[in-house]
């Protein structure tokens, strides 16, 4: 007798999987020329959502397993070759379950070729009580490359007792065309530091995030316009020029992950307008 596949936290945990997506310009579009998406990764086919730039491919990344579990190590490689344009987004937040004594790890490596455009705007992670995660994002920019990369985190205790997640260690590093480090944002925080009146983010915060708009100054949105757009969706935001001329960095604090999602959508829209010169179509969730 065949047993049904059990995808509960216990048996779905401890996976080490690596997904690879490579886009290259050909025939007036950005074609997905290489795809490796082992379970639990799942992607849709590429869509051309923007009439102004049909060469901009948009893909939705989905987790097929219901989240990240203890001891998981999930790696994603996104490569956009010379002159191509690709946007990888998601349709829902990813839950990080209680990892017990075995923290989970995830990584994203984004390689943006010469004069290419890449965007990675996934919905926030939702850290459950006891979740411990290490997340590393590495972005390598070619000459004239443009990129928009967002990350966000929310936390939720389904029991309503405000139990904190365990720990989050996060690192984003950006390297220029000569391989030189342009910026590194590395942090470690315990969930208990983000709960209640003494929260490091302020007493009403339930989520935070960042958006990295990478490119030369003439291809970046106005910081005040960005902040005003995010004020309008109820998100505290501050935009600052990044070190070594890497671009513009946006910090976000919000009451919940849903607002972070809306803030990232707004920043993506303004970023694409400044970088590619058109207003992108809404990426439907």
């Amino acid at each position: 007798m065949t047993r049904p596949l059990d995808l509960s936290g216990e048996t779905a945990s401890g996976r080490h999987r690596r997904a690879e997506l490579t886009f290259a310009l050909g025939g007036g579009r950005s074609a997905l020329v290489h795809q490796v998406t082992p379970y639990p990764f799942h992607v849709t086919r590429p869509f051309a959502l923007d009439r102004a730039r049909p060469d901009l491919a948009t893909l939705y990344l989905q987790s097929a397993s219901g989240g990240i579990y203890r001891a998981d190590q999930l790696d994603l490689s996104l490569t956009v070759k010379v002159g191509a344009a690709a946007h990888l987004t998601s349709q829902a937040a990813t839950v990080v379950h209680d990892t017990g004594a075995l923290p989970a790890r995830q990584s994203a490596t984004i390689t943006v070729g010469e004069n290419a455009f890449a965007a990675l705007t996934l919905d926030p992670l939702v850290l459950f009580p006891g979740a411990e995660l290490s997340s590393v994002t590495e972005i390598r920019l070619g000459a004239g490359a443009l990129a928009i990369v967002a990350d966000g985190v929310a936390w939720h205790d389904f029991s309503g007792e405000d139990r904190p997640f365990g720990r989050l260690t996060a690192e984003t590093a950006v390297y220029g065309p000569d391989g030189r480090l342009l910026l590194r944002d590395r942090s470690e925080v315990r969930g208990a530091e983000l709960i209640g009146e003494r929260s490091l983010l302020g007493p009403d915060a339930g989520a935070y995030g960042a958006v990295w708009l990478l490119g030369p100054p003439e291809k970046l949105p106005d910081p005040e316009t960005l902040e005003a757009a995010l004020d309008a969706v109820g998100v505290r935001a501050g935009a600052s020029p990044l070190p070594n001329g890497a671009g513009l960095g946006l910090r976000l604090i919000a009451a919940n992950g849903g607002r972070i999602t809306r803030a990232v959508e707004a920043a993506f829209t303004l970023g694409v307008e400044a970088m590619l010169g058109f207003a992108p179509a809404r990426r439907r969730k």
Binding site: L200, G238, I253
Partner: peptide, 15 residues
Amino acid sequence: RIESFAPLLDIAAAR
């Protein structure tokens, strides 16, 4: 390695 977590002060200082 150097690490920092101060989003609230970053936002306040940027604005």
